[in-house]
Amino acid sequence: MSLLSVRDLRVEFDTRDGLVRALNGVTFELDKGLVLALLGESGSGKSVTLRAILGLHPPSHTRISGEVLLKDRDVNRLDEVERRAIRGRVASLVFQEPITALDPVYTIGDQIVETLVRHRGLAPADARRRARELIDLVQVPAPERMLRSYPHEISGGMRQRGMIAIALACEPELLLADEPTTALDVTVQAQILWLLRDLQRRLGLAVVFVTHDLGVAAEIADEAAVMYAGRIVEQAPIGELFARPAHPYTEGLMQATVRRGQRGIPLVPIPGAPPNLAALPAGCAFAARCRLVREECRTTLPPLYQVRDGHVARCHLVPERFGASPIPKAASVA
């Protein structure tokens, strides 16, 4: 059984502009110790997916269906108290902007300690000792100073290390990283990425790594899922995805990205903008921007097709473009 299994997850927000369908049937699995990259443009539903895994969406304005099985327990069926026991303990969240995700009037040390006290019930002195170990774990040059510092007193890279230390405090098995390097300077980005990869391997963490940077995904992930308008439109092992992108949107993403040894090949941005989630089209959500669009694309939602073993894509053209395996995979999921 996998550590995390998300099945047909749907999340809708009641807003003044109508019902925003942020997730429209997201399905994926993640085993212990593996890294899944969640790719996609802004607004495709990556952050909403991570929050849904921890059951963090406020119940008052949100409708959620489907399953989020975390160690075989469905988060969507747990009550708030049971969910709290999971958050930070079984799965932790690392945010994009540590400066907004850390409490500005608590020291880094206090923010680590409070997590330990919450889940481990440690005595303050023990919690402090453990906090020091965690700071060492995230490789900070001046650990004691770091523990005593408020978030505004340290650099962006150090803040993100603090955030990671908090996330790892109670030894979770799953780390949900929401663009953890995007807000940082380029050189610091590389350091944090290295740190995360190193920690992932040493601690055997499973990671859902949200990014819109294909290069970052290639560095860290075993597998990648590409999201578009609240659906996973393609999923494959990372090498396979780069070798054989099967969905026109994935191809577009790759052409819009700078890659090593790519000199001479022009960068082609994807024209147009993602669809309005409050008024999704009946057929393929990418149809308005797709260079290969056909009549049936506008009327019929494409099912997931198997491109190869472990490689699926949600596009009507997969059977004819990639030959042999035109069997729609799991029609119940689509």
Partner: peptide
């Protein structure tokens, strides 16, 4: 409304 409140909830605080 600030993000750190979500972060506090995300680490399991009551």
């Amino acid at each position: 409304a600030q993000e750190f409140v979500l972060a506090l909830r995300a680490k399991g605080l009551g």
